[in-house]
Every structure is written in C-alpha cells, then in structure tokens.
Design a binder for these strands. Sequence first.
DNA 1: ACTATTCAAGAAAACGTTTTCATAAAATAG
DNA 2: CTATTTTATGAAAACGTTTTCTTGAATAGT
Lengths: 350, 350
Amino acid sequence: MGIREVAKLAGVSVSTVSRTLNETTYVKDETRLRVLDAAHRLNYSPNAFAKGLKSNKSNTIALVIPDISNMIFPKITQGVEKVMRKNGYITVLCNTGEDCGAEQDYIKFLTGQRIDGFIFATLTKNTAYINELRDQGIPVVLAGRYNDESIDAIGVDNFKAGYEATKYQIEIGHQKIVFVMGNPKLCLYEQRLAGYKKALEDYGLKFREEYVLYELYDSISLYSQTRKLFERIPDIEAIVASSDPKAFMLMRALRDMGKDIPGDVSIVGIDDVEFSSIIDPPLSTVAQPLTEMGELAAKKLIAQIKHKEKTGKLMEPTVDILDVKLIVRGTTRKRRQNESDRHKFVELEQ
Amino acid sequence: MGIREVAKLAGVSVSTVSRTLNETTYVKDETRLRVLDAAHRLNYSPNAFAKGLKSNKSNTIALVIPDISNMIFPKITQGVEKVMRKNGYITVLCNTGEDCGAEQDYIKFLTGQRIDGFIFATLTKNTAYINELRDQGIPVVLAGRYNDESIDAIGVDNFKAGYEATKYQIEIGHQKIVFVMGNPKLCLYEQRLAGYKKALEDYGLKFREEYVLYELYDSISLYSQTRKLFERIPDIEAIVASSDPKAFMLMRALRDMGKDIPGDVSIVGIDDVEFSSIIDPPLSTVAQPLTEMGELAAKKLIAQIKHKEKTGKLMEPTVDILDVKLIVRGTTRKRRQNESDRHKFVELEQ
DNA sequence: ACTATTCAAGAAAACGTTTTCATAAAATAG
DNA sequence: CTATTTTATGAAAACGTTTTCTTGAATAGT
C-alpha cells in the first residue's frame, strides 16, 4: 500500500509516482494517467509521517481555548475549523480549562508534534510563553485578545462594546447603572469596564466604585452577590453585564427577588451568544462577531504559514479589530419619570 | 536539534540516546545521566514525524461531530478531550456540519493522516463507511448512537428518556400530550418517540398522529408550526420535547401566543443542556450525562488502541448504555381539575 | 548535422527516529 | 578457568516519502 506498490503496478519508478501525485515537474500525460489509475486502484493515500518528515509540515494547527463549554468558544471554534478544513488543515483542540500550567504543558507537547501554527483564544494576560513560541518562528495568532502588538491578533472592540452598552442605557434615561465585571485578569473585561467608565464620563455621570459588581469565583456566587447588591442599593435602574452569561445569571437572581425585567431593571449584555435571542425576554446585547473572528484568525494564521513556507520568515504582525454592534431586544426599557407613573404603566399593561 | 546533536554532546551513539529516552533496554546509569543532561540542555524534543514513521502511531484521535455550536456537543467534546489529553493523546476536531459527504471526505483525509482512532458523535443512520473503517482495523467508537452492535459505542437510554418524560406528564395528570419530534434520520429521536408511545400505551392513552409535531427544516420553522398546532388544537395540556433546544423554541412560541408556562402548558425536555437550568422558568428535563459519555467513549477508544498495539487486532465491540434521569424544575405542573378551577387558580396567584 | 535546451524518468540520498544485528565487557555458572 | 549469560553500546537497516543528481530522449537553434 505504499508508493512502491503504485510504482510497480504502473510500471514506473517511485520518483515518477511522487512527481505525478504532487504535480511538481514534467511527466508525460500517458505516464501520469497510468500512475493515477494505479494509485486509484490501490486506494493509495500517502503516508503523512513520511511526508511530514521530508517537508516538516503537518497541515495541522492547534486551537487553544480555555473552555469549550463556555458559550462563546463553540462559535469561534466553528469558524476556525471551517476555514482550516477548506484549506486542507486539520484542527486540534486544546481545552486548557483556564489553567495556565496545563496550557504550557500542552504547548510544549504540541511543539514536539510539529504543529504548523497556533491560534490562542485563551484570555489571560501572561503572554510570555506565547511570545516565545513566535520567537521560535512558529506562526501564532491570538483570537479575542490583543494586549500586545508583537503578535498577530483578531480582536473585537471591547472598549466600544462597554461604551455602547452603557451609552444606550444612559440615553434611554437611566443613571444608576451597575457594571458587572468579569475576571480582571482578562484584559477584555478591563477594556469593557473602561468603555463603561468613559460613557459615564461623556454623559456627565459620576463613576462609583460601589456600582461595579465583581464576579468572584464563579457564576453561582454572582447570584448571591446580586441579591446583596440590590438589598444594599435598591434603586438601581440598569445593568451593563460584561458578558451575556453574566446577564443571564443576574436576570435569574433579579427575577427570584421579584423584580421584573425590563420593567424594574433594564439589562444589557455583551457577546450575543446564541441563547441571548432565545431566552425570554430576549437579551439586549452588544454583539461581537464570534464566528467571523474564528474565520479571520484562521485565515491570518494560514497566511503566516504560507509566508513562512515561502520565505522562511514570519510577516510583521498585525492586529485587526472587529466592530461590535448594539442589538436592542427585550431586556432594556426607557426609564419612567417617577414612581406614580410607573404604577400607572403596570396597570395599563395588564 | 536532532537526536544526533544530543548523541554528540553526550559522547554516545544515537542508539544509546534513543534507548535512554525510551527506556527500552539496558543503559548504564552513568550514561543515562549524561544523555538526559544533554537532551535537557539542548531542549531536545523528538521529531513526531520520524517517530510516527517507525511506530505507525500518531497519538492522535479524531472526534467527529455534526455541529460544535449545537449545545450538546461541547459537553461531549470536553469529556473526550480531557481523557485524551490525560493519556497523551491529541484530539482533532471534525465538524461535519451534518453533511454526510463532508464527513466521508474528512474521514478519507484523516485516514491518510494516520489517525490512531475515531470517535463519532454524528448521529445519522448510515454507518456503511464507519463499519468500513473498523473493518480496516481502525479503532472506532460511537458516542450517542448505538443502532448497531458491530461497533463499540457509548449511548444513552433514549427510549427510557422518552418514556420517563411522558410518564411524568401523565402522572401529574395530563392526557393531551404533544411530542415534538426531531430529524427522523437520527435514531435517537425515533427511540425517544418510541418511549413516548410506550408510556402512552402503558397508561391506557391512545397515540394520536396529530399530537406529534415534526421539526421540519430548522428550529425557526418549529416556531410557526407550534402556533399552527395550537390554533388547530387549543386544549393541549402538555408537551414532551425530544430535545431541550426544541423545548426552548416552543416556550418562546407559546409565550408569544400569550400562554403561561407552566400555567397553561406543562413542558418537559430531554437532554439537560447547561442552559436548561438557567432560563426562566428552568426547564424540567430528562438529563443525559454528556460529559461522562465523552469520557467513557474516550476511554473505550484508548482501550481499543492499546489492545490493537499489543495484539494487532481489535477487541470484540461492546455497547454501553448510560442511564438517564428526570429532573423536575419549573416548566411542569400538575393539571388542574377543570376550566373553572383554573380561573380561580390564576386569580388566587395574582 | 551538430550542439543547446527542454522534457521525461530512474537511481539514490535524505529526513530523524527506532530497532535489529553485532560485538565486547562484565558477571555468573560449572 | 573456561563457557555461558547478562549488561552495555555502536553500526547500520528500516520506516515511506520527496528531492537532488543523473541520464537519455526529443525538440529547437544555428
């Protein structure tokens, strides 16, 4: 089942078989046909190990993500895989479980496996070992993080996302706006928070530390923290959640406290995961183009790989920032003038 | 950076280096230390291509799924990847997009890439090319489907899932129970439907074809179909959805028609995806252990791979069926005695 | 008609390992 | 003290390709 068998059946040398199959130089039409036929008859498929050994190419890339069951990553993954497959690359999945150590181990292991390139969608700040990878000449692109100009990246405008979400809440009349913060180690949350602050500032509202709710530990803790916050400050009017899943958790907590959404609290998220449009009421949110991000990251990586194959060097890194877009759905609502108006409104609706 | 450099630095032959690194036969302690030190100093990592060429092992498996952004697959994927990584295997992700042709292309391509084994979580009935794969001696395990005893598989008891969901609706007093059917090409839906029918029968209820709602095309169409069904048969009391995402879509449609859940319609799903517990009200559903399914499939595949390495043959295939469990949450509710009672109830609550 | 050039195809080297074969020293047995 | 076994290592073959080096035939240029 090797190339030798094909050669024998076609009555040519192995070199000729290789040449026809790889279309590398001249081979007479008549011979080519014989070879192709033989290869087909023997159901020949070249040994990837041998090929790789010569070419030092695996046609395999690694997608490193923290947690595939976190809703934003399947979309990114889908985009990456699709583009890779179309271009003849295989995608290996590395689920690091948000564990930096595991990530490094994985990288070390994969480097030995001669991976052609890496896409990192992990979101921690520490990029030392990632830069190292690039310094070794291995193509790397970051998806969803771009704290560093020294590496190729596709990101979204997280600052704008935070800004737009907040701006909208302000423009529909809210002033007491809580920001739900995520893990501060991830710069995307910092950027979103910065956007929130800037919007407040631009509209002459004062930033108050007690209005930002930090997600400590996990999303369960967010539930109890929400209740505590609303007990302390009952007149909160609006919420900007730094991610959709956080918005879901808050909606849950609020509902359990007897609050109506958007009647009592106007909520806007950031992400636009698939579920945001399915829940009731559908979540208003700032959408980031996740699948597109994956696709672009994949294309960028392929471009680097090809360039490296040709020239032996990597291109200068660039970072592309994708735009975000506010989608108004059912969880946001104009502020009513005062309490008495509000009751009127409620009665009217029933 | 090859083994030769290590050998030179350690002052030994390449054979000795290989032997120390693979711990295959005798090598003097003193020599071993020298080699290890040299390898470490040169940051040596063996070339996977060369290794594979000799051993015919890639330490790589392929996970074939229809759609990673379909909520049940990230969980399975997570389970597979975790076990694989722990055992030194790499997982390549194959997202076929429910397209059988693409799947076959992918398989052909991967077979050439010398993949050690396959896990299929795709759910179509046609297994001809999968059986072929096994006949070629390639380890294969199916996750989530088990229509065939000739291949290793991990499945869930889909019949029981349909049965338990229906049984519960009956036991809390409902009689007019709609079943929402999925793609009939997937045997898991057929099995769930069979469970529904059997439960009806066991409780002396008649199966009515007009009570099963077929998801034609996509989940969007399900929305309009739901409305049509309830216009035609307004007194439906309960719904058994053959998957949680379908339940979500129905809840949406029902809500838009002004129906209260579970007040007017009692709904139970099957799957227990992460979101089911997050939405409001949280979905009652029959849970299948998705992550566990992935883990077990991975373990089974590894067992086959190891066995094949040792004996050159595959073990007799076995299929394991995991149990499912009804989780009662907020979308199900006991039937009230009659219409007048019902109005009373509603008033009381307000 | 004789040399360049292009076309066509085989022989053999190379890729970086592992593994077999060979050999020698050391340990053990009789 | 020799004969065998065990321990330890090097040389070389093998894995299945691609690619360089040759060589030969055909075509073209004067």
